[in-house]
């Protein structure tokens, strides 16, 4: 992670301090509505190059809607919504995916009837070119060694944790500059969660920016440069890594009081 000083500062200051380098993802006043129901009501945040940014909040806070709007899968409105300087508004999901933005949606949607290796091949669809593909493959299989053992097997036969690993691995094969994860730990065993969080750390160390949406507040806040707390479609609070040990603050953030 670049040398952004966050320690000792209030969360608000931390947010503005790291705004210096041109952000890779810039979201200003994003809102999403389904029919008449507002799911996201004016959310602003950014992710710097190589940064890990967290978003936490209870169910129904608008986390998934925010991500789907970023990825072009649902329509959102925003004052500014750019990825590497170009606007994402009105673009198709496949165009966004091909521009170096990879979303791993909630619930590890792998293609169960296809083999693990075919699933991984589908991750390569969004790549700009095939240069360095072998290296990426090798790196991804080192991150998730279990996948190498099951390459020929139908992905549907993997366990939940393995499917989540496959979903992340598939996203990484597009060599994204920003990896967006929607609740990757959902429904996983403690060991599997550790594997996933270790992999996320490794991805970030390799220079890829990560936007991590989670329910596991403590782990997320500790890992992220900034963690935004979402409640009823708005950002109610922004936390820094130092806050990870403040159980009271986390509880308060979570309950949205």
């Amino acid at each position: 992670m670049p040398d952004t000083p966050v320690n000792g500062e209030t969360p608000q200051n931390a947010a503005s301090a790291s705004a210096r380098p041109e952000p890779i993802l810039d979201v200003q006043n994003l809102s999403v509505a389904y029919g008449g129901v507002t799911a996201v009501a004016g959310v602003s945040f950014h992710v710097g190059p190589g940064e890990l940014v967290g978003v936490i909040g209870p169910n129904g806070a608008g986390k998934s809607s925010t991500l789907l709007a970023l990825a072009g899968a649902v329509r959102g409105k925003a004052d500014r919504l750019t990825f590497e300087g170009t606007s994402l508004l009105g673009r198709k999901p496949e165009q966004i995916a091909r521009s170096g933005f990879a979303l791993v949606p909630e619930g590890h949607h792998i293609f169960g009837a296809l083999s693990v290796s075919d699933n991984l091949r589908l991750g390569e669809v969004a790549r700009r070119d095939r240069a360095g593909l072998a290296t990426t493959r090798e790196w991804v299989l080192e991150l998730f060694p279990i996948l190498r053992e099951f390459l020929g097997r139908p992905a549907g036969l993997l366990s939940g944790g393995q499917q989540q690993q496959l979903a992340i691995a598939r996203a990484l094969l597009s060599e994204p500059r920003l990896l967006v994860l929607d609740e990757p730990s959902l429904g996983l065993s403690p060991t599997a969660i550790d594997t996933v969080f270790e992999a996320i750390a490794a991805v970030q160390q390799a220079g890829t920016a990560v936007l991590l949406v989670e329910q596991r507040a403590q782990q997320t806040v500790a890992a992220a440069a900034r963690t935004h707390v979402l409640g009823e479609g708005r950002i109610t609070m922004t936390l820094g890594p130092a806050d990870a040990t403040d159980a009271e603050l986390l509880a308060k953030a979570y309950l949205g009081s």
Partner: peptide, 23 residues
Amino acid sequence: SIGLQVQAASADFRIARLLGVRS
């Protein structure tokens, strides 16, 4: 690759598009 993309789109079009499959 295109054939695989057809299979992916048949299984789940939404997810396929998120992977960059051109609908």
